[in-house]
Design a protein around this nucleic acid. Structure first.
Lengths: 218, 218
DNA sequence: GAAGAACCGTACCGTACGGTACTAGATGAG
DNA sequence: CTCATCTAGTACCGTACGGTACGGTTCTTC
């Protein structure tokens, strides 16, 4: 637990996984053959099987490896001002958008989703734990800080987080997974980030702190 | 165009597609082999290839067939009361939840997403057009009716629809695609429907018509 | 510098799948 | 009755992939 994610793969193995991710991004799952990975990474199939067990082990390792690269930095424990909270929310949404629209993330999600359905939902669980877990934890910490600072008002943090996520992403993640170009999607995400924060603060902002931005009624 | 979707498949072909969908739901994509479909549907592989061209044609036909089953009823053209709009929104969200959490829909989305990444995003485009298109159109019509009735206030209908969708679904569709049990998900969706409508109306309700439900400020 | 481990490259095996060919039986028209 | 069409069932083919085995080379360690 002291060195949980960093060096669980040797440099050589990391290089192989990097190459495997590249192949996956370029050609989808069908392009990710054991022989192809071995050839692209200049390693032998025997080593692949020695290191990762079998093909599924390789896929799981790719997910774990990619997850180990996102730093889940815990931003702050101090009291937040309105502007700071707003800025942190915006940063969170921008980071979220960047992750979700990243080629590697999309490819890994496609991979996990594609082989979910059947009995082997192993990869899907991995993605949920290693991918969405940390992101959600980070957001919840931020929202909690906002509440402690008297800027947000909610009873169920998970509910508030789901709302924020929905406002920021809506159905764009699924549409990207289905093939909408990440460029198109990123434009849409970018134009929605600030609006999502406005809406979120109208829904969950502590009343006396935000004097109702974008006031709409008489 | 007069008979667009109904009888594009003969009864025999529909029965075969039904069986193919059953196989897909049960075992995922890997279980959907041409031999398996032929065996399950008591037809010959040769007939499959005659009718659908090749395996991809069969997959596309499955999507088109399933899409042809959802009726995209246009509810109303008359003026709406508050209660009617609320009820229609709730019905829409419940229907949306039911579709998204349906086994067949999940299986087809997994199939399309799984083979998106590579060059062949054909199925993904089909899902976007045949699946999300009609649903979005229906919701937009409802929102437009709400605006014409003076109950909603928005400038961009698409933006309002995306907000409604995000509030109602958030990341649950992707989580279901990744393997979260539909039962768990349906409970979460059900408990969120009314809250989503409240939030949506706070964000887009015409001011003088809704006297700020769940008022939060002094 | 020798012993041993790790590893690359390749060749190999079994299998499973997509797609095609062929035969036999059913159905319907003339 | 007969011929044409359609289709079920089966057998077959080529290929591509997951997984294993082995010889040769490099790197480590004493």
């Amino acid at each position: 637990m002291s060195k949980p994610e960093q060096d669980q793969f040797s440099p050589r193995q990391s290089a192989v996984l990097e190459e495997a991710l590249r192949l996956l991004v370029e050609g989808g799952e069908k392009a990710l053959t054991t022989a192809g990975v071995a050839r692209a990474a200049n390693c032998s199939k025997e080593s692949l099987y020695k290191w990762f067990g079998d093909r599924d082990g390789l896929l799981a390792a790719m997910i774990a490896y990619q997850a180990s690269k996102v730093r889940t930095y815990e931003p702050t424990g101090s009291k937040l001002t309105r502007e700071e909270l707003r800025a942190h929310l915006l940063t969170f949404i921008r980071d979220l958008d960047e992750v979700l629209s990243g080629e590697v993330s999309l490819a890994l999600n496609r991979l996990s989703i594609g082989q979910a359905g059947a009995g082997g939902g192993k990869l899907g669980r991995l993605m949920l734990e290693r991918g969405r877990g940390p992101i959600g934890k980070r957001a919840m910490a931020l929202l909690e800080a906002g509440r402690r600072s008297g800027l947000l008002d909610f009873s169920d943090g998970g509910e508030a987080y789901e709302t924020l996520y929905g406002l920021a992403v809506s159905d764009l993640h699924v549409r990207m997974l289905l093939g909408v170009s990440p460029e198109t999607a990123r434009k849409e995400l970018g134009s929605r980030a600030e609006r999502a924060i406005d809406a979120f603060l109208r829904l969950y902002g502590a009343a006396n702190k935000w004097e109702e931005p974008r006031i709409r009624h008489a």
